[in-house]
Design a protein around this nucleic acid. Sequence first.
DNA 1: GGATGTGAATGCATTCACAGCA
DNA 2: TGCTGTGAATGCATTCACATCC
Lengths: 217, 217
Amino acid sequence: MEPSKPDLVPNPAVRRLSLYLRHLEVMQQKARTTISSKQLGVALGYTDAQVRKDLAYFGQFGHPGIGYRVDDLIGRIRRILATDRTWNVILIGGGNLGRALLSHPGFGPKGFRIVAVFDTDVSKIGSPAHGLVIRPMASAPLYLRENPVKLAILAVPAEVAQHVADDLVAAGIRGILNFAPVALSVPSDIAVNSVDLTVQLEQLSFLVNSTESTRKA
Amino acid sequence: MEPSKPDLVPNPAVRRLSLYLRHLEVMQQKARTTISSKQLGVALGYTDAQVRKDLAYFGQFGHPGIGYRVDDLIGRIRRILATDRTWNVILIGGGNLGRALLSHPGFGPKGFRIVAVFDTDVSKIGSPAHGLVIRPMASAPLYLRENPVKLAILAVPAEVAQHVADDLVAAGIRGILNFAPVALSVPSDIAVNSVDLTVQLEQLSFLVNSTESTRKA
DNA sequence: GGATGTGAATGCATTCACAGCA
DNA sequence: TGCTGTGAATGCATTCACATCC
């Protein structure tokens, strides 16, 4: 049995784990060997208690009086996030965004490898894209039967996103990173993470507008 | 004085407002005239009480027995999010991601217009990019003095992101959408929204891995 | 009947504060 | 002394439940 699968982990804690890992990797690059919860917190804008509690959900990784050993903590968090292995990922959508994601340099070092690209738009089929060739969406189920992949990135227009998601789930995909501006409906055991770029900008416009108004007061 | 600037709005509520708006715009397209908090909630995966409370933070927009008038609510939320006007945006970074964002069709209809592109990489300067020409980052302060713009999208490597952010803030930028995998440090009256693509995938790998393990049990 | 708006109650997440260890 | 790990306390966000209105 795997060690330490805690009963109840706050969802935000998992998100922060990724950020801790990101900063730890920078510290490792700089040959730092240990780091305290205080230092990690300051670097990312959290309290030291927050950092300790987040980590404590998964085990006892620290050393009183010393802090956390950087190498060790990196390994621990990677195991928790399950990125201590390589995840093959398929990309749906060979448009501008899709191709930008294909050539995104950050995925590889973090353990994610895009192994195939599909598109519903027949005019794109066969085009080369960063070392891969865009395949017809209809061929995805067969591909997934021969090459089991659990993660998919969805970079297609909103109108077809739900339909594509249904097909992916039926073909065995278990997690979807969705860039289409629509709320996908999927079975509860399928993970979905949505990134809507305009929503991000709207949040900023709200915040900037608020501070502007407050300023005059 | 502007009406209804509530004292305390939960941050998550503002995020959901964007999602409500997105769905309302689809409903408007379908010529729906009214919608209830229940229907809106079901479409997005929230409870009806959640929807009503979120909206009630900003005023009384609904009609008992009827629901919310779609056109009206769209206008209200746009005013709240301050997207009832056009926001000019500058883009920093003419790489793959930057150029994909430039050609992103969703921004315009939502009121965001990218008006200039800058890059620190001299080899990119002068290249055409979706109707614009990439300018040297050093020219950004002058540009911003002549064309006041409040929002910036940051699509540069992590190593230069903080430096660029500092320059942008000094030049008057008030909100930053950051795609670099690093926590930006900015004055408290500057809004920052960070999107780290690998963090998104890590969340999925965690979730998928969890459900896989649980399944066998 | 059908829906909103909202105080009260609940449930989560964060922070405090301190015992315990190096 | 310096720092972790953790129960207890606080603070926020969500949900309940109901008075109110069309």
